[in-house]
């Protein structure tokens, strides 16, 4: 790299060098965007060759079933990472929603049965938690990671309080049906998660709000000067993230038929890993729905391989921790001048 520059410097003006620099930055950016896709293809090929039946329809359907809940969560997290913030309250909101929905539909703990209204109510309350996080973040001007860390603790606490230690079992038949139904040979849960993901695509790519999200992550001052309501957009992003977390909590409850906050435990980390693997930057402005999909798929594949190979689940988490550090290191932009804190 430096050799090229010295060579180029010999017979070009400083202005030409500056343009060369910009052009090579553009080239690097392209490589960065396609790297996750290439990696995904490589992993798939290696897995298909070495593991029997990896590429079989059955395993593919299974893969998509496994990634249904992470995909829902990743949809919301993508928005948050795009504005350069982070939401650590996701596990809490997910656990809270899972616990609450179990109590609002037919269950073994109480005689309340609101049916579909219960689901709607849960989603509204879950989203409300996100609105509060976002509001406190922009109004009190506290960094998002700390405010969401605290909110995560609060919302987990409320979640546990709803059932006071003994979780409720869901007896509503609709949950059974959703969990066991398949359409075109693909489980209904997968379809639901794909449609939430599709909704995320629509919002991010085809609305003014989606573009405002990109603009804030890339250049907040410029976004503000064009008249974008930055605070409102940020609050909406946190609300959206909580909305997906809430949906994920309900889906998890559908799958397990039991409502407790622990369904949210250990969900945050894989999701952030996946989104970053897809090429989103923690500094904001970089990433997208397609990249997130690639990231989640890649992560699920890796996980799947580790399971097939027979790695202890505890070690899997350890491996995740290492993967995210490597991925963040590769995607973060840095110069000698910056000091991170």
């Amino acid at each position: 790299m430096k050799k090229n520059e010295i060579e180029y410097m010999k017979n070009h003006s400083v202005g030409a060098q500056f343009k060369y620099k910009i052009a090579s930055d553009v080239k690097k950016e392209k490589i960065r965007i396609y790297a996750p896709l290439i990696l995904l293809v490589c992993i798939t090929i290696v897995a298909s060759v070495t593991i029997d039946n990896f590429f079989s329809p059955k395993n593919i359907v299974n893969l998509f079933y496994q990634m249904s809940i992470p995909l829902v969560l990743a949809t919301g997290v993508t928005f948050v990472l795009l504005i350069g913030s982070i939401d650590l309250s996701l596990e809490g909101v997910m656990g809270f929603s899972g616990a609450l929905v179990a109590l609002l539909v037919a269950n073994t703990m109480n005689s309340v049965h609101l049916g579909w209204l219960g689901i709607v109510l849960t989603v509204i309350l879950g989203t409300g938690a996100g609105v509060i996080t976002g509001y406190l973040h922009v109004k009190l001007r506290i960094a998002s990671f700390i405010i969401s860390y605290a909110m995560g603790s609060i919302i987990t606490g409320i979640g546990v309080l709803t059932y006071k230690g003994t979780p409720a079992n869901v007896t509503w038949s609709v949950f059974d049906a959703i969990a066991s139904e398949s359409v075109f040979g693909v489980p209904l849960l997968t379809w639901i998660s794909l449609s939430i993901f599709g909704l995320g695509c629509l919002i991010l790519n085809y609305t003014a709000f989606g573009k405002a999200v990109y603009a804030i992550g890339n250049n907040e001052a410029a976004a503000r000067s064009t008249g974008i309501n930055v605070n409102k957009t940020k609050i909406m992003v946190f609300a959206l993230c909580a909305f997906t977390a809430s949906c994920a909590g309900i889906l998890a409850c559908v799958r397990l038929k039991i409502g407790q906050v622990s369904i949210g435990v250990n969900q945050l980390f894989p999701v952030i890993t996946s989104v970053v693997l897809g090429g989103a930057s923690l500094a904001g402005g970089k990433g997208g729905m397609l990249q997130t999909f690639i990231g989640v798929l890649m992560f699920t594949e890796l996980n799947n391989i580790l399971i097939i190979v027979g790695v202890d689940p505890n070690y899997r988490q350890l491996i995740q921790g290492i993967i995210i550090i490597v991925a963040v290191t590769l995607t973060i932009t840095r110069s000698r001048k910056t000091i991170t804190q």
């Binding site: 990109y214 603009a215 992550g217 250049n219 976004a223 000067s225």
Partner: peptide, 15 residues
């Protein structure tokens, strides 16, 4: 003051 991760037209009509 352009937003570099958006398209040209999106930048022109941002907001």
């Amino acid at each position: 003051s352009l937003v570099s991760n958006l398209s040209v037209s999106q930048n022109i009509f941002l907001g």
